Computed example of a mutant assay.
Amino acid sequence: MKKLLVILLVFFLFTGCGASEYMLEFNSNGGSLVEEQLVENGSKATKPVDPTKEGYNFQYWESNNKKYDFNSNVKENLILEAKWEAVSIKTYKVKFNNDGSIKEEEVTEGSSIPEPSIPNKNGHIFLGWYEKEQSEPYNFEKIVNSDIELEAKYQKKDVASSSSQHEETIFVTNLELKLEKEEIERKETTKLDVIIEPRNATDKTLKFSTSNAKIATVDQNGVIKGLKEGEVTITVSTEDSSNIKEKIILNVRKKIDGKADNDIQDD
């Protein structure tokens, strides 16, 4: 009888005095931090918010190389490992054809092509990079969504008919922008002054443009008028084939008196 009591006591010590709580740890394997959980014996763990990791998609949590089931009861301490899948990054090929010399680059989907330096060709003026069958130079701010080939176009320099005198075209090398006011109110105007270098450039014609005509307009004299609250980028570019371009940011704010401009309607 005594022997039976001893056996029952030992059984009780090993089965009835188990841990009341277990620790569940999350190893995100280079991803964002996930807090550990203290789970009651026999209870279910709470599935945490999926971690994040640059260049990867989260798949699931696994234990002992198997997907962990958060509907299962926790009966021991566990360390769960994050399972990741690498994100496939799509790229596009960009070919620069400079008078038969081909240079290739790759750009990722959703990005734009970095504008290369201006190439040189003896006796010619560089006009810009062009897509096939396009009459306007390529816009390097455009998002790329396919392979593309750009060709450098040139114009032969004019040679003076007089043998005694030859006038060389002097191109713009730099534009310096200066706003009278970096912030204006709606309906208010400001002037964008431009310093052209060198000062003896042959063609000083400039083109002014705005990134959002609903926020502010700009005329070809550099006069900017605020229309709507927000931030706008004003771009100034040359017209002499030097492809010099500079940008400046202007803020348009509400009128200080807080009164609405009823005659300006937002689209």
Rank of each mutant, 00 (worst) to 15 (best):
V194Q: 12
K255R: 15
V34G: 00
T46M: 11
S209F: 02
K132G: 11
I256L: 13
K181W: 03
S164Y: 10
N98D: 15
Y130M: 06
P114W: 14
F12Y: 14
T189P: 02
K142V: 07
V6W: 14
I195W: 00
L24M: 14
S43Y: 12
Q165V: 14
V232I: 11
Q37R: 10
H124R: 11
M23P: 00
S28Y: 04
S241L: 03
E229L: 05
S241I: 00
P137V: 05
V107E: 05
E35H: 09
V87Q: 15
I196K: 00
Y154F: 15
Q155C: 01
W61L: 03
V218G: 02
E180K: 14
Q134K: 15
T91G: 08
G226M: 00
E188T: 04
V223D: 06
T235Y: 05
Y92N: 04
I248G: 01
K157L: 12
L24V: 15
K181L: 10
G222H: 11
N29P: 09
K245R: 11
M23H: 05
N57R: 11
N122V: 09
Y130C: 04
K3Y: 09
D50T: 01
L175H: 09
R199E: 15
E85K: 15
N27F: 09
T238C: 02
V74L: 08
E167W: 06
N221Y: 13
N262D: 10
S88P: 00
F171C: 00
T169R: 13
D203H: 03
Y92I: 09
F126D: 03
E231V: 13
T173E: 15
N41W: 02
L127T: 12
K44C: 12
L227K: 15
S72C: 05
K66A: 13
K153G: 07
S237Y: 08
K95Q: 09
F26C: 01
E141A: 06
G258K: 11
T205V: 13
V6K: 03
K181F: 08
V34Y: 06
K178C: 07
V49S: 13
V159S: 14
N77Q: 08
K3D: 11
N243H: 04
L127Q: 10
G258C: 07
F140S: 00
G18D: 04
E21M: 07
D158H: 06
D147E: 12
